[in-house]
Computed example of a mutant assay.
Amino acid sequence: MQEVTAEILIERVWAYCEKILSGEIKACQKHRWAVQRFFKDVEALADPDCPFYYDAEAVLDFYEWARQFRHVEGILAGEPIELTDFQLFIAANVYGFFKKENGARRFRKVYIQLARKNAKSQFLALMASYEVFPTTEKHRVFIAGWSREQSDEVYQAILEQLQHAPILEGKYTSANGRVKKYKTNSIIQPLSREARKLGDGKNPSLGIVDKLFVA
């Protein structure tokens, strides 16, 4: 089996983008705009005055993190999670671009819109656990939805992934409706409707809003 490198992943992303723009892969106009923006952002990196830089190794880190987990249902049950091309495209945008001035990620807000049965909860769960576990810093991840049931969808996906990941055995606890990492006291927690009414500030490292409704 060929070793996966950062260069191979970026080539995958680039090929996927080209297929979107050529029409080989059918996509809506907004997704085509996202691909065009990605090409434009990459081209801008050649300018020495560009305030951003790209770290393909960071994308590889997220890809390798995803492969630590396994599918828990369907025909792929038991197999390592292999990011699809569109998931890798999202990761390449979110985890690849950084600010030169302070090394922070360029994109702090991400809107992901997918049709049903496209592993959205699985992908969001990977992002949540990636924020907490492969770091020595304390992080707080909160999941919100229109209802507690909706926020629980992503939270349950997180629990299923963690429970089937040998590398995390003994490194966390899941009790009282939240996951807590032992070494750093980092947490992953779904929010209730009552928390929204109280308006308490949570100061999250990562906030996930599942099934966002805009009036």
Rank of each mutant, 00 (worst) to 15 (best):
F107N: 12
F107L: 07
L206C: 07
D85S: 10
V132S: 01
G207P: 12
Y130A: 05
I20P: 08
N185F: 02
V42W: 13
Y54A: 14
K19C: 11
A104P: 10
K117G: 06
G78M: 11
Q161T: 02
Y130D: 03
T135N: 02
V179P: 03
K138N: 06
E82F: 07
R116G: 09
R178N: 03
Q68V: 04
K19E: 11
I20F: 08
G96H: 09
I81R: 00
R178M: 05
K171R: 03
E131F: 04
M127R: 07
C50W: 12
F133D: 00
Q29S: 15
V141Y: 00
K99Y: 13
A165F: 04
K109P: 15
I25E: 11
N185M: 04
D85V: 04
Q36T: 15
G96F: 09
V72W: 11
P166M: 04
Y53M: 15
E73L: 08
C17E: 12
R140Y: 05
G74P: 05
I10L: 14
V110K: 08
I187W: 02
E64N: 09
F86T: 10
P48R: 08
R193C: 05
F38I: 12
R70H: 14
S121E: 02
F62L: 06
R105F: 13
L114H: 08
P204T: 03
L206H: 05
L206P: 15
E137Q: 11
V13N: 09
I143W: 01
A66C: 06
K100T: 13
A15S: 13
I112V: 14
E160V: 03
R148I: 01
R178S: 02
L191P: 13
I75Q: 10
A44C: 13
F62K: 04
H139A: 05
F69K: 02
N203I: 05
R32T: 13
E3F: 08
F142G: 01
S192Y: 01
T184F: 03
I90R: 10
S205I: 03
E101H: 14
P166E: 00
R106S: 13
E137M: 07
L159W: 03
A175T: 02
Q87D: 11
A56N: 14
L206A: 06
R193V: 03
S129Y: 03
E101N: 14
P134Q: 01
W146M: 04
E24R: 12
A215P: 15
R67C: 10
N102W: 09
L88K: 08
W65R: 05
N93P: 10
Q29D: 15
S186E: 01
V94T: 07
C17K: 09
V141T: 01
K202E: 06
T173V: 00
P48Q: 05
A15M: 06
S22K: 08
K202I: 10
S147T: 09
V154P: 04
